[in-house]
Design a protein around this nucleic acid. Structure first.
Length: 465
RNA sequence: GGCGUCGUGGCCAAGUGGUAAGGCAAGGGUCUGCAAAACCCUCAUCACGGGUUCGAAUCCCGUCGACGCCUCCA
């Protein structure tokens, strides 16, 4: 039985879908005005892993990830670059799509955009006004009225009185209540805008997600996800809007990932301590980032530094070792060893599911893979044939792909391969003649070129580092 | 100030009542011409102080500390 920690109740709850076997999952994507960073990658990876696991457990997942392509920061950036805001955001959407593909994140079912949801957003706001959950102010803005929502604050555990006391925001004169937030913002001169019953303007930050959710998934969804920095105000306001609109419970499970930490602090644009996904991938392979996430727990802060990345990279290498082929001269395993390997595979599956069922305990799931890899490697060391390894390696491959790990050996150019093989042939001859210095020199020089040579009983193998 | 998360070996990190998974690093070993890889062995009593319990890292109270949100943020 899958259990998920629900931010709304602050409890780990049994997962039950609204409709049998179907999971409606909405994950807040990014505001597209700049290169996405590894913190965004963490969030995307967390929900990719969740989605993959739900599918592994037999659910069909409708996975919606939005792009916020109309926003203050986009407008500002577009002004700097003297570019149309929508062209700018479209460029970054394509960019981010590529980043996600590079990270082996499965494509979402759909990717709604604010700019393409405008009629529905306007209609949504009109309904809120009709229901007296929102009001148009004289300045052309429309605000959501927080006092109209009796349980406003339930997600973040705040009370309106507390928030007023701690508020450091300059309160707009036009607001009835200081915590009221904008559903619609009147356009300033020269800004991109859309026509509405309240004049030219554009949506506030939170309403798009409520509208796009409704459009893509309906009034109620199973999982709503995002970074835990979105709990307040973004998700709090989303709940307020949607539940005021529908009169029903919005999302069953609110799932939030922890923040990536760089040098003990959250990575964020305002702190300037950013590593973009592209920068990261120019240094390390995608599996390393994923392993970093898998090794931790998705709700906790994740340390991103050279030490944790080096360890993650080693972990990836280690897992890859399980998939290496049997020795060509393998003579075969004894019957009891074959049985032991088979039973190790079976318990790996069970233990994997047990771990993942416990609020996606990926660290536990990874430990299961390490254990299975040990069994496989021992079997190979004990002369298992390829045929005898096949089934266990199949299980290993299956489970690691549920986590989204590719575990591919690196490839170089086909041309280089022929030369490397040639060098290895020559080196084999040199070794026959016991010219160890020369033989070692070849090995060292190849290593400098990121080609690792490993000698064994039945010949020399090589791989790219 | 308010709300919340958390504090497990050198590092990353599972475990939420019955005497501490896994990985990295380190040390020893098998294999190897030497390496590398793989495999084997060694390596913690869970921030601190109280309490509940036959029994607590795991529940309760307190202290100290870290981090996040309260303002754009995955």
């Amino acid at each position: 039985m899958l259990k998920i920690y629900n931010t709304l109740t602050r409890k780990t709850e049994e997962f039950q879908t609204l409709e049998p076997d179907l999971v409606k999952m909405y994950v807040c994507g990014v505001t597209v005005y700049n290169d996405a960073h590894v913190g965004h990658a963490m969030s995307a990876l967390v929900f990719d892993i969740i989605r993959r696991y739900l599918e592994y457990r037999g659910h069909t997942v409708k996975h919606v990830m939005n792009y916020t392509d109309v926003d203050d920061k986009i407008i500002q950036r577009a002004k700097q670059l003297n570019e149309d805001p929508l062209i700018l955001s479209q460029r970054y959407i394509e960019d981010y799509t590529q980043d996600l593909a590079s990270l082996n994140v499965l494509p979402a079912t759909s990717y709604p955009q604010v700019s393409k949801t405008m009629p529905l957003i306007i209609k949504f706001i009109e309904v809120l006004i009709q229901k007296e959950a929102a009001y148009a102010a004289p300045n052309g803005d429309v605000y959501f009225s927080v006092i109209s929502d009796k349980d406003y604050g339930k997600l973040s555990g705040r009370k309106l009185d507390d928030m007023q006391a701690g508020s450091r925001i300059e309160v707009e004169e036009a607001k009835d209540h200081p915590m009221d937030f904008a559903l619609w913002k009147a356009a300033k001169p020269g800004e991109i805008s859309w026509d509405s019953p309240w004049g030219k303007g554009r949506p506030g930050w939170h309403i798009e997600c409520s509208a796009m959710n409704l459009a893509e998934l309906g009034e109620q969804i199973d999982i709503h996800g995002g970074g835990n920095d979105l709990i307040f105000p973004h998700h709090e306001n989303e709940i307020a809007q949607t539940e005021s609109y529908t009169g029903r419970e919005f999302a069953r499970y609110w799932v939030h990932n922890g923040m990536l930490q760089l040098g003990g602090e959250k990575m964020s644009k305002s702190l300037g301590n950013i590593v973009s996904i592209k920068e990261f991938l120019s240094q390390r392979e995608a599996d390393v980032m994923r392993m970093l996430v898998l090794n931790g727990s998705y709700r906790a802060p994740l340390l991103f530094n050279d030490d944790t990345l080096d360890a993650a990279q080693k972990n990836v290498e280690r897992l890859k070792s399980a998939l290496r082929p049997a020795s060509a001269s393998a003579s075969g395993l004894a019957a009891d060893a074959i049985a032991a390997l088979a039973s190790a595979s079976e318990s790996a599956k069970t233990n994997f599911t047990d771990a993942m069922d416990n609020d996606f305990n990926t660290a536990g799931a990874i430990a299961v893979l390490f254990e299975l890899s040990k069994f496989i490697n021992t079997a190979r060391d004990n002369s298992a044939t390829g045929e005898q390894l096949k089934s266990a390696q199949g299980v290993f491959r299956e489970l690691s792909s549920v986590l989204g790990l590719k575990l591919e050996e690196k490839k170089g150019s086909g041309d280089a391969e022929a030369f490397i093989n040639l060098l290895i042939e020559v080196r084999a001859e040199v070794r026959k003649q016991k010219l160890w210095a020369l033989s070692d020199q070849i090995r060292d020089k190849l290593k400098e070129l990121n080609v690792i040579i490993e000698d064994s009983k039945d010949g020399t193998k090589w791989r790219y580092l």
